[in-house]
Computed example of a mutant assay.
Amino acid sequence: MDRFVVISGCSGGGKSTLLEELRRRGHQVVEEPGRRIVIEELDRGGSALPWVDAPAFARRAMEMSIADRSAAAAAPGLVFFDRGLIDAAAALQHLTGEATLAALKQSHRYNRNVFLTPPWPEIYVADRERRHDLAAAIAEYDRLSAVYPSLGYQVHILPKTCVEKRADLVLSVLKSA
């Protein structure tokens, strides 16, 4: 769907900060499924965590991403997704070898312009929900950098600059598309 825009890339690369700026500018934002799942699982003592049962975590992220897309259909204007279905499917395929990405070439489409935050070691921070190290985050970024173009998306690597300039760039690309 042309109104659904993915902001993806390296963990700790400034996605959430960018999405908060886009929200501040009046746009709808869908929070990252992975963080929501980790918070829920930690709060209830569950095991669908990336460091406990990564395939179960990825499957939950896919389910949540599909539900997020359905809920976002009612929102007017652009809707920005902090990661989404493709990220979750790419993770599951990497973990299990299941061909989860093939179906996404035709269905559950997002805006053809996808924005990736590159690895940014100077701002990377692990926390309660993000327990993997920078090397794992970079490996995931490398996979996503290949997956999105393979599905026909135009990838835009965001510069390591202030959040206002990043948001301006995203909106400029979308406006000219």
Rank of each mutant, 00 (worst) to 15 (best):
T96S: 13
A88M: 06
V114L: 10
D133W: 00
H27T: 02
H156W: 13
L22N: 12
R25A: 00
A71R: 09
R3C: 15
Q28K: 08
L49N: 07
T96V: 02
Y141D: 09
E164N: 10
L18N: 15
V38H: 02
L104P: 01
A74P: 03
C162I: 14
R112H: 05
L169M: 09
S47F: 04
R143N: 13
L174P: 08
P33D: 08
P149I: 06
S107Q: 05
A146F: 05
R143Q: 14
P76E: 11
H108V: 02
H27Y: 10
S176F: 12
R59G: 11
E40M: 09
E20W: 12
M62E: 10
S70Q: 11
D82Q: 02
E129C: 01
Y110T: 08
E164A: 12
Y141A: 05
N111I: 07
D168A: 03
N113S: 14
C10P: 04
E164Q: 14
G45A: 07
D43T: 05
A102S: 08
Q154M: 12
T161H: 02
Q93D: 15
A73V: 15
E20F: 12
G34A: 12
E41A: 10
I37G: 13
G9Y: 06
L49H: 08
T161A: 03
A89F: 06
A58W: 12
L22F: 10
N113W: 13
E140T: 04
G97F: 08
V163W: 06
V30P: 03
V114Y: 06
K105C: 09
